[in-house]
Amino acid sequence: MTARILAQQARADEVLGVLRRGSDSQAEVDFSRHTPVAAKILDQHRSNSQGSVADAPVAEAAAALDGWRSAHTVLQHRLGNGDYPGAAALAVGPGELASTARFSALDEALRSAVDRLTSVERAATTTAYRATSPLTVGGLVIGVLCGFSVGGGIWPRLNEYH
């Protein structure tokens, strides 16, 4: 989830940088700050997972992130050379190599990973609930049996006083 948020923030920084025709260096700094952190999160997930259901989408996301970063490099090069129409077309254009398509692939892979992990967690929570729900009835039965045991233990002592 964090990687997806960072990617969306980086995409916003990228678009702002294009809208400002490359004159806003803070947008590039922010992009350069967000994307490595997202890449690190994806790498950590890939190294820590052992057959997770989200392994394939995370690998796709890592590849898409690399592609998007290379498209961003080309975009920044065009902005640096004063080719604003070319940079704008690369940033929001419909082409397969455009930044939009690369980001969309990344976002889709991250969404798929989040959805898969969410469904696994939801299933685990449901299983845990089903496994522990009989404990309520068991606790009630044990409480009633304890009450009868205490009453049965006290009854002979009460009979001694009659």
Results as ranks from 00 to 15, higher is better:
residue 19 L to N: 06
residue 78 R to C: 00
residue 81 N to D: 15
residue 45 H to M: 10
residue 143 G to D: 12
residue 127 T to K: 11
residue 43 D to G: 14
residue 73 T to G: 04
residue 136 T to Q: 09
residue 43 D to L: 11
residue 60 E to N: 04
residue 118 T to L: 10
residue 41 I to S: 01
residue 5 I to Y: 09
residue 162 H to S: 02
residue 142 I to V: 15
residue 154 I to N: 01
residue 41 I to K: 07
residue 86 G to R: 14
residue 68 W to K: 01
residue 48 N to H: 12
residue 65 L to K: 00
residue 79 L to Y: 01
residue 81 N to Y: 13
residue 154 I to V: 15
residue 155 W to D: 08
residue 157 R to N: 10
residue 15 V to R: 01
residue 48 N to G: 13
residue 85 P to W: 13
residue 30 D to L: 11
residue 22 G to P: 05
residue 85 P to D: 14
residue 67 G to R: 01
residue 111 R to P: 06
residue 87 A to W: 02
residue 116 R to L: 15
residue 95 G to E: 07
residue 50 Q to K: 15
residue 104 S to E: 11
residue 131 A to E: 12
residue 39 A to N: 11
residue 45 H to C: 03
residue 15 V to S: 02
residue 36 P to S: 10
residue 63 A to Q: 01
residue 111 R to V: 03
residue 13 D to T: 06
residue 54 A to V: 04
residue 98 A to W: 06
residue 110 L to C: 09
residue 96 E to Y: 09
residue 89 A to P: 06
residue 17 G to I: 03
residue 71 A to Q: 02
residue 81 N to R: 15
residue 118 T to N: 10
residue 145 L to D: 14
residue 116 R to V: 05
residue 49 S to D: 10
residue 150 V to I: 15
residue 143 G to V: 13
residue 71 A to F: 03
residue 139 G to E: 09
residue 93 G to K: 02
residue 95 G to H: 03
residue 77 H to E: 11
residue 108 E to A: 14
residue 124 A to R: 11
residue 66 D to E: 02
residue 91 A to F: 05
residue 59 A to Q: 07
residue 142 I to G: 15
residue 99 S to C: 05
residue 139 G to N: 13
residue 123 A to E: 04
residue 111 R to L: 08
residue 118 T to C: 06
residue 149 S to C: 03
residue 106 L to A: 00
residue 105 A to R: 01
residue 67 G to P: 04
residue 141 V to N: 14
residue 36 P to L: 11
residue 71 A to L: 05
residue 35 T to A: 11
residue 108 E to C: 05
residue 57 P to H: 07
residue 92 V to A: 08
residue 143 G to Y: 08
residue 152 G to T: 03
residue 4 R to F: 04
residue 162 H to G: 02
residue 64 A to R: 06
residue 87 A to P: 05
residue 154 I to F: 10
residue 56 A to C: 01
residue 28 E to N: 11
residue 107 D to W: 02
residue 122 R to K: 10
residue 25 S to Y: 01
residue 77 H to D: 14
residue 10 A to L: 04
residue 29 V to H: 13
residue 15 V to I: 12
residue 2 T to V: 12
residue 24 D to P: 05
residue 128 A to S: 10
residue 82 G to T: 12
residue 83 D to R: 11
residue 161 Y to V: 14
residue 45 H to R: 13
residue 70 S to G: 01
residue 104 S to M: 09
residue 151 G to S: 07
residue 160 E to T: 10
residue 97 L to V: 00
residue 97 L to W: 04
residue 74 V to T: 08
residue 59 A to W: 03
residue 143 G to P: 07
residue 14 E to A: 10
residue 120 V to F: 03
residue 156 P to G: 02
residue 16 L to A: 09
residue 147 G to F: 04
residue 137 V to N: 14
residue 45 H to Q: 13
residue 140 L to G: 14
residue 108 E to I: 07
residue 152 G to V: 04
residue 26 Q to R: 14
residue 17 G to L: 05
residue 117 L to Q: 08
residue 30 D to C: 10
residue 58 V to T: 03
residue 140 L to T: 15
residue 146 C to R: 12
residue 95 G to D: 07
residue 30 D to R: 10
residue 99 S to P: 04
residue 28 E to K: 11
